[in-house]
Design a protein around this nucleic acid. Structure first.
Lengths: 195, 195
DNA sequence: CGCTGGTTTGAACTAATTCAAACGACGTGG
DNA sequence: CCACGTCGTTTGAATTAGTTCAAACCAGCG
């Protein structure tokens, strides 16, 4: 169990462990000395993150909100792998999917405009998005701050804020209190999301 | 066997295959309708690329120079997996390493300056780099064009060219004919490579 | 010798950043 | 319940890194 903002594990930290997210959301990020950081992924309920065979984390893990985790030691995890052979195949296919996700993100970071980045984010990360009654009014509850969105998209908070503001002006979305965002014109978002 | 510029397989193409690179270099890339492309990786001799279980490639594969490949059909590959169980473990750990590489690339694309991107590229992709006699004069033979470097680093050819020019002006590197680049001041490059 | 594909260079432009300030939401404690 | 402080968000103005467009240049090659 970790509170908002708490660091769960650090980049390069020696730790032969496997964590499963029970509830809440964590972010995995890379940083440089001078303070720049890039979020390389989020993990929600049912998802996991783990140290490589080398026993080192490739990213810093931090709680986005209140988070409950289930921790397996390296040894215990190996035991599980032996008992459930299909687990190994499952991990393999999850890793494959993650590679694809990261490739997508490479295109996003390297080739998309700020607007495209943000619309993509809105469409993909409706973390607990509710496809509310009306077909054209999905509500996305974003548990992350503008700064975190920025660190994920390779932008600044200001730019994220400005893009959202312009989307509001154009009646494509509306932003409510406490990080709620309503997607009004999903089709338009999709058209503008590039790719 | 494929010649320079030849497309070996296309993004989303249905193809249950596994390719091993025997000699030469291929690039994996993602593209959008409007022509933007982002290279998501290179594969050199001894490395492989394959379709996911879904049987679709996640990227377009193109020959960088003349390339010799060894192709395994999906069925044949599965047979190999059964015969050599350690192969599966090996693939797993390679995928893990690839995840880490892509995470690095995310930071590079999202948070580094053009200069840092290029210096990183020079240091990492000495494809057939010769640690020549002198300790401070590594020679990198780049088999890729400026445009390809740009597509890998999320820049334009012009920017890549300009950064290289400025590195030459500052006597950190020299560029020879036919894509040879000599790294004069490796220490400086490392210092400037960010991270 | 003259193409062709790749590279370099310059000048103008623009998307996104930086810096600064005001604003709003939310929880805490008086 | 309200005042206060903190943290996050928004907005504006100025700046800049990188792009775009255009042209010249260069190397390799038939």
């Amino acid at each position: 169990m970790f509170e908002r903002r708490q660091t769960i594990a650090c980049e390069n930290e020696a730790a032969s462990v496997f964590f499963n997210v029970v509830s809440g959301l964590v972010k995995l990020s890379r940083g440089s000395q001078d303070g720049r950081t890039q979020i390389v992924g989020f993990r929600g309920p049912g998802e996991f993150f783990a140290a490589a065979e080398t026993g080192r984390l490739t990213a810093t893990v931090e709680a986005v909100g209140r988070v409950v985790l289930c921790k397996f030691s390296g040894a215990r995890f190996k035991r599980l792998m032996r008992v459930y052979p299909q687990l190994s195949a499952r991990l393999f296919s999850i890793n494959r999917r993650r590679l694809e996700t990261l490739e997508n993100q490479l295109f996003l970071l390297g080739r998309m405009t700020a607007r495209e980045k943000v619309t993509n984010f809105l469409l993909q990360h409706g973390f607990d998005s509710i496809p509310a009654g009306a077909p054209h009014a999905h509500c996305v509850r974003l548990p992350v701050t503008r700064a975190e969105i920025a660190d994920f998209l390779g932008l600044t908070t200001e730019t994220v804020s400005r893009v959202l503001a312009s989307l509001v002006r154009e009646r494509v979305i509306t932003v409510g209190k406490s990080r709620a965002i309503h997607l009004i014109d999903v089709e338009r978002l999709q058209r503008e999301s590039g790719r």
